[in-house]
Amino acid sequence: MSVRINIHPSFEVLAATTAARLITKLLDTQNERGEATVVLTGGTVGIATLKAVVNSPACAAVDWSKVNFWWGDERFVPSDSPDSNAVQAREALLSHIGVDPERVHVMGGSDLFPDAAASAEAYSRELAGAAAREHSMDDDGEDLDTTALVWRALPRFDVLLLGIGPDAHIASLFPEMAGIRVRDKLVVGVENSPKPPSGRISLTLPAINSAQEVWMVVAGSDKAGAVGLALAGANPVQVPAAGPAGQVKTLWLIDQDAAAKVPEKLMLNGSR
């Protein structure tokens, strides 16, 4: 698994370049497999990237009807709330590109479930159902270890997008809280989140790390400390941003401000 660091001169260039990179990756994956799967994130730079996809001249080259969309996390708010990551993604991208509604897998809101844990359990079942359909084509009945069994409860994630908070949280996995420690579940409900709203749903770190490629997309000087600690190899329990690692590739796509505290040896060669 390779780790690459790409530093961009501004927020705007970061969003536009990440959008172009995503379009290219989806095209390449569709050419190879016929479809592609992306896990979306929220946040300022995440949503800006989705808007940049729509504004790209190459947007129409992707067959969006054959792209599967999942989410890394969601705020436990009503399904139509403007604070919902899914609502923001719909406004920025999904309503503009002719997606197949059956391929869009949102996390259930507070109008549908009594609490975040119930929504997380339902999302786990949805992931497992998609994985079962995917694996039924090539199931040879071999014995599998625990890690393989976890991954077989997940569909293939070609690209998983993540942002980072100033406290180094990823998705809705916060430092020192229970969610970042979970290893035996795919999705967790988060209560008493230090960042409003208090209720959230999140993929766990093992689910995140099942992705073929994980892209850490980060902008702003307030994120520089978290980026620096993560790339220096901090403990993921204290610095969740240090935990993501794609099966094939991990990309750090960051702007100049967020790169201010990246260890110098990594700045020189762009990898670790």
Rank of each mutant, 00 (worst) to 15 (best):
I5Q: 03
N6R: 14
E12R: 08
A15C: 09
A16P: 07
T17Y: 02
T18D: 06
A19K: 04
R21K: 09
L22I: 06
T24H: 15
T24A: 13
K25G: 15
K25T: 10
D28L: 14
G34T: 01
G34K: 10
L40Y: 05
G43E: 03
G46R: 06
G46V: 00
I47G: 14
A48T: 05
K51D: 15
A52K: 09
V54Q: 09
V54L: 08
S56K: 09
S56D: 10
P57K: 08
V62F: 06
D63I: 02
W64C: 13
W64E: 11
K66N: 14
V67W: 03
N68T: 09
G72Q: 03
E74M: 08
R75C: 05
R75Q: 06
D83K: 14
D83V: 13
N85S: 10
A86K: 10
V87Y: 01
Q88N: 08
R90C: 15
R90V: 09
L93T: 02
L93W: 05
L94T: 12
G98T: 00
D100N: 12
R103N: 12
V104M: 11
V106Q: 06
M107L: 11
L112W: 09
F113H: 15
P114F: 01
D115R: 03
S124I: 02
E126T: 14
A131K: 06
A132F: 11
A132D: 12
E134S: 08
D145K: 09
P155Q: 10
G163K: 00
P166D: 08
D167E: 11
H169W: 00
S172A: 10
P175N: 02
G179R: 06
V182P: 10
R183C: 07
R183E: 15
D184E: 12
L186T: 11
V187K: 11
V187W: 07
N192E: 07
P197R: 01
G199D: 09
I201H: 06
L203Y: 06
A211H: 13
V218F: 00
V218T: 04
V218G: 00
A219E: 04
D222L: 03
G228R: 02
A230D: 05
L231W: 00
A241N: 07
A242Q: 01
G243S: 07
P244Q: 00
A245I: 08
G246F: 04
G246T: 01
V248G: 13
K249E: 14
L253E: 08
D257R: 07
A260C: 09
A260N: 03
K261V: 01
V262H: 00
L266Y: 06
L266G: 06
S271Q: 15
R272V: 12
R272P: 15
R272C: 14
